[in-house]
Design a protein around this nucleic acid. Structure first.
Lengths: 216, 216, 216, 216
DNA sequence: CATGAATGAGCTTTCATTCAT
DNA sequence: AATGAATGAAAGCTCATTCAT
């Protein structure tokens, strides 16, 4: 292991999307580039109305070059999903929510970070929830697993709180799933509140509501 | 029969989708027919992957005939949405939930009917929540208004409960919106529960959870 | 024959366009109606972009009814041409140009009437010259013959002028043809004069130019 | 060859019809190819009855490839017009009519060249005069301008003749326009002469007639 | 590894015509 | 004789994908 130099000690990355190009570093760099540009286009125009040519223009890559890093158009969808999930995971880790000792504090912090995330990636969330069904079955399972991981992470936090007597929850998994679901209410159903509440108010009410699910 | 004179007492129907055909009764009949078949196809293959020819086959109508009842493919989407909303409204009215005196009983009944509906129209709900963004703007607003009406109906029930001292709710509208959102958790996120809970258990937990939002 | 009452003593009309309907008077009335409305539509949108449905709306007749008086869409084109030629012939006859004795006077009057006609039926002329090629061959010959008749009529007038020593023309037929052609310069090429000459000036110059062809 | 460096001295060409293909040389080559084949088809069947698939067959290009060089079917019409106008201009320049000193000689030569052109491009002229109305407005103006240029060129020649005392013309512009119009009489109204005069006779009479308009 | 022209199946939509009522 | 719903061939156009350079 000690001998793994510069290009060596990168984490073993299992690419979700296979590419023709051999140079793994390049592949990752380009796929990230593609995902970022595609994300914007997909959000603006929708997946179906975004053509490969649009992508080619937005990325500044020739059509043929794009196809060196993806095999089908659907692959771009996967890249986008991948980047979103990866960035969420990295954000949570960077914010150190997993290291907070006090369960209630940790829970609150976790919810808070996820609410922030929902606000920052509002459009991405809308896009993902509405177009995730377009994913080819194989990929759909990968991303369902990632969603599940999110829920399981939260469930772990909830369970720790129960064990320490801080929370009282009857069905921890159902509750965790409901919370994750609830956290997307603003992006997905926020328009119902138009003219009634500001985003900040919504987030506060949502946080309150979620807190009541575990503390009482 | 005697009361059904030629052009006499047909109900004044305002169509969401305009058709070239003049016979209004026929239009309604055919648009319903189209909507039903389209619904199944859209759910199975998605809107974009369902071609007009698929629709023509499924409905048994010639392509040109289809276009006697719609103007654009998008219109079919509207028909589907329309039928769904209409059937929900009719179902609620038929079940008589609006006539129950006791607020708690009424609330419970209302939730129950909506859960039933969510179970019966599972696929339709998935479809609608994922593809509603494809609606042309004009129609999108119509259907957002119908969603809003649902929420407002529930809010009314909740407020009555508050007035009569049966419920304690801080933000009735937010709560109503959250409840409507929560009622779709099984169709939309049910897969996260796979192998853990049965649909009946999920529905019970969801009902419990919702009840706790207003009663306390 | 003497028994032919009201519907009997109509001139023997040979319809250019055959219809399924038996009542000849009705046929003529309706075909005239169709031709008039079609004329406007064709001029405004062009033949190809005018659909049978457009015609149905404009005439107030059901699509099926239209097809009682024509056999194909092309037939409408013929009706339009027919009406134009008929009205020109009737106009010339009514103005009595054929009865003027003095050749020069007659010639001037004839040219004048045709110029008036070209101005009054500007759009019709443009339409006919640009879309006459769409006529089915059989009809094309009919209308070419009518054009030829116009030229021959003029040639007769010119020849009379020559015989009486009023005109000097080397090739009467070529000249007659050229004159007829020249009379349409304003409708067909008038746009080249935009901002330079008024229609009246153009007509005056055209009349002068034509006069010089025969008088000298 | 040595002077043809990679991106070096290709002429700056402003295309009337924009294409997706970047290689400008290729674009010109292919658009010319398309125009030539389309011209024949349009003349034979008319613009409307010529389908994109017909064009695809005639050019030996796939439908999609065609659309790499045009944006809409109308564009093909423009290409055809463009090629015609370009070839006329090149023909006149190559024949050196602009360099003849003597006004009468120049005028005669000019008319002669245009008559030749009308004879060589008989069908193209018929087509252009009848279908030019189908051009999209933007292009219509371009080609009206080119027509106008033709007239202005001739007017210049006529005016020079007037200035040098060789011609006597009252309205040079009207006369120039009339002459250009008259030059197309054979293609457009030639059928009226069938069986009476040969093309050569017609051309001679036309040339005479035109000459008389300026010399007297 | 980059490029971008070529491909053709497939899409939505229109429309002249028919025919049962 | 009038109606207007039904028909389906055919139109123009798009676009994911390939492959020679």
């Amino acid at each position: 292991m000690g001998s793994l130099e510069k290009t060596g000690n990168k984490k073993k990355v299992t690419n979700t999307v296979m590419s023709r190009v051999k140079n793994q570093e390049l592949v990752l760099k380009m796929q990230l580039h593609i995902a970022k540009k595609a994300s914007k286009l997909f959000i603006k125009k929708g997946y179906h109305k975004t053509s490969i040519r649009d992508l080619s223009e937005a990325t500044g890559m020739a059509v043929g070059s794009l196809y060196n890093y993806i095999k089908k158009k659907e692959d771009v969808l996967c890249l986008v999903f991948d980047v979103f999930h990866r960035s969420l995971r990295e954000y949570l880790e960077k914010q150190g929510v997993y290291n907070i000792e006090d369960p209630e504090e940790q829970f609150k912090a976790y919810i808070c970070r996820l609410l922030e995330n929902a606000q920052n990636f509002r459009d991405e969330i809308i896009f993902m929830y509405t177009e995730s069904w377009l994913l080819p079955q194989a990929f759909k399972e990968i991303f369902m697993q990632k969603e599940l991981d999110n829920i399981l992470n939260l469930e772990k936090i909830v369970k720790r709180g129960i064990d320490q007597g801080a929370f009282r929850v009857e069905y921890p998994f159902y509750t965790a799933s409901t919370i994750i679901y609830q956290l997307s209410i603003e992006p997905l159903r926020g328009w119902t509140f138009t003219g009634k509440y500001s985003i900040e108010e919504i987030n506060r009410m949502t946080a309150d509501h979620i807190l009541k699910m575990v503390i009482n």
